[in-house]
């Protein structure tokens, strides 16, 4: 996880007393497409700040010479053979889609 730490530092301007400002919470909420009320933002700010305090505490531990882990379990990825196992189940899947046409899932227009 260590390599990601600079990223968090960059996103959230840190101060010793208050880790996060409401503006930071609004930004991550908007990136995650979450609609939040002012009250919810305040709650999230306080909870997230608590998490950051915990992270800071962990950062203080001396990890010199310890290899960083990238997963909580120290095991390796199992692989599957390159074989096609899935069959066409389009009708089944599209039965629960709000709108389909010509085999396509229809969504509100998006043009970047």
């Amino acid at each position: 996880m260590i390599p990601y730490w600079p990223y968090f530092n960059k996103v959230f301007a840190m101060s010793p007393t208050m880790f996060l400002a409401n503006a930071d919470v609004r930004k991550v909420a908007s990136l995650a497409r979450l609609a939040m009320s002012e009250a919810e933002i305040e709650t999230a700010r306080s909870q997230l700040s608590g998490i950051f305090a915990l992270i800071e505490e962990m950062q203080a531990v001396d990890t010199q010479g310890i290899e960083p882990m990238s997963h909580a379990q120290d095991v390796a990825q199992r692989l599957r053979e390159d074989v096609v196992t899935e069959t066409n189940q389009r009708e089944l899947f599209q039965a629960i889609a709000p709108q389909v046409e010509a085999g396509l899932y229809l969504v509100p227009q998006v043009i970047e």
Partner: peptide, 12 residues
């Protein structure tokens, strides 16, 4: 696919 799905986008 942005063309012609009555103002909607088609996803494949």
């Amino acid at each position: 696919l942005h063309e012609d799905f009555h103002g909607m986008t088609g996803i494949d």
